[in-house]
Amino acid sequence: MNGYAFTLAGAELVACASGALWWADRRLLCFSDLHLGKAERMARRGGAMLPPYETQDTLERIEADIRACNATTIVCLGDSFDDLAAADSLSEAERLWLTRLQAGRRWVWIEGNHDPGPIDFGGTHLAELHSPPLAFRHIARTSASGEVSGHYHPKARLSARGRGVSRPCFLIDGDRVIMPAYGTYTGGLRSDAPVLSTLMRREALAVLTGTKAHAMPMPRGEALE
């Protein structure tokens, strides 16, 4: 996979430029924060009526990633749906598409704060997935190690010859990786936010996603007390 290779608790992982995480030994591909059905949820709540194509777009990219590495296990790391009702709002075509992707693969839905309950899709529903040496959960725990999480939608900014560039990114240190949001309609939290500076060690890396993965020292802010 096109990405940045690193080791976490002995597991050899690749932070893909697409925003997915690849664990080749287990043929496991992990996506975080898909937020499927976001546009529908906003409209339902009387907000803006955004172009209703983001579920389609997210599924297209998931499919391309799965095909590229021929993954056999898929982990969706929580906030896969923008809320529980959004999971029901997917069109028939989108439901079939998802079912087709699931066929012949182990598919794990981790609960997130947006989708805390069971959803009406095939696959395994878990609060956390323990797959030693790694643990997959939605929100990072300060004391954990070997942990893969999402939730924060980290992004990093840097200035390259005066050009400010901001990209969704992985945050990686010796204990954990925090994944970028994969969904099409997702924004980001800057890596210098106190909560991220508190979670990540001093030597943490940010791996910028996009057409290529670029690793850099994580841009930090002040940590929480």
């Binding site: 690193f6 080791t7 010859r161 890396l205 850099m216």
Partner: peptide, 21 residues
Amino acid sequence: LLQEETERLMTVSGIGDLKGA
């Protein structure tokens, strides 16, 4: 530009060596 700048930062900070650690 991004490639150049991230590589420079990795080298300057010295944590580029941590890769795969």
